[in-house]
């Protein structure tokens, strides 16, 4: 099984506003796809459609060759176990310690024993560089970068087939962006299959096997990172990239 995710002609609108207008792409095992595009282009909605947090209007989604939309092969909550999701605003469970945040899915959803869950959780936390001194802290006691790394650990502990990341560094202070990007680079090096929405160009060039540029609900351009960055074909891509570069030049990132 080589293909982990296939999205075919996905449409979604909220009332009069169509957010996705026929998006299609596929992700092979071990591949990293980076999605870029201006805000409001439909990037977050696309990711939320893939793990069925948002119900698409039409189209087709297959996970590891099996249909999950429109006719899910299994209960949706069981399908979601196979899809890791990392949110822009971390969304850690505020009433749980770091360790419990990573453990809770293993214990409650996967029904592992507490010992097994703890072992896996600690392994995941070490992978994202969260040491024992933080395991019993609560999310509010952590920096944004630490919270996002815990959130990544929470997702990878579930051993998903694919990880979806929705602007994982957009809510972070600039000095904390690097530590999170390094963790994601590390995951890419371990051949974790990922779809990442980001505005970080350098990072995208680094990790992406392919960049998809979305605007106005459609994929307007796709290709190898270098091709897209150095020689964008679509005028919208050009404008979008110029805006991003200008932000970098002004140190506004």
């Amino acid at each position: 099984m080589d293909e982990v995710l296939r999205v075919e002609n996905l449409w979604k609108s909220y009332g009069e506003t169509s957010v996705l207008r026929g998006v299609s792409f596929e992700v092979k095992r071990g591949e990293v796809k980076v999605i870029m595009g201006p805000s409001g282009a439909g990037k977050s909605t696309l990711l939320r459609c893939i793990n069925l947090l948002v119900k698409p209007d039409r189209g087709r989604i297959l996970l590891e060759g099996r249909e999950i939309y429109p006719k899910p092969y299994d209960a949706i909550h069981r399908i979601r176990q196979r899809i890791g999701f990392v949110f822009q605003s971390f969304n850690l469970f505020l009433h749980m310690t770091v360790l419990d945040n990573v453990r809770v899915g293993l214990v409650k959803v996967k029904k592992l024993s507490k010992e097994e869950a703890t072992k896996i959780a600690i392994e995941a936390l070490r992978m994202v560089g969260i040491g024992p001194e933080l395991w019993n802290k609560y999310p509010a006691q952590l920096s944004g970068g630490q919270q996002q790394r815990v959130a990544i650990a929470r997702a990878i502990a579930m051993n998903p087939s694919i990880m979806l990341m929705d602007e994982p560094t957009s809510a972070l202070d600039p000095e904390l962006v690097g530590e999170v990007l390094n963790v994601i680079r590390d995951l890419a090096a371990r051949r974790m299959t990922m779809v990442i929405v980001t505005h970080e160009i350098d990072f995208a060039i680094d990790v992406a096997d392919e960049i998809l540029v979305i605007d106005d609900g459609k994929i307007v351009e796709r290709g190898k990172p270098q091709e897209i960055i150095s020689n964008p074909k679509h005028p919208r891509t050009r404008r979008f990239l110029e805006r991003l570069k200008r932000r970098v030049d002004h140190g506004l990132r």
Binding site: N51, L53, H77, R78, I79, R80, Q81, I83, G84, F85, F87, S89, F90, N91, L92, F93, L94, H95, V104, G105, K108, V109, A151, R154, A155, M158
Partner: peptide, 30 residues
Amino acid sequence: IPYGQVEAALSLGMTKAQLFSTLIAPQAFR
């Protein structure tokens, strides 16, 4: 309760009952 946490619980694969007992009840009580 911030909706983002609900989304996070669902994306881990929790059922509605698990979502209620592990997230909503303990946080709402506090």
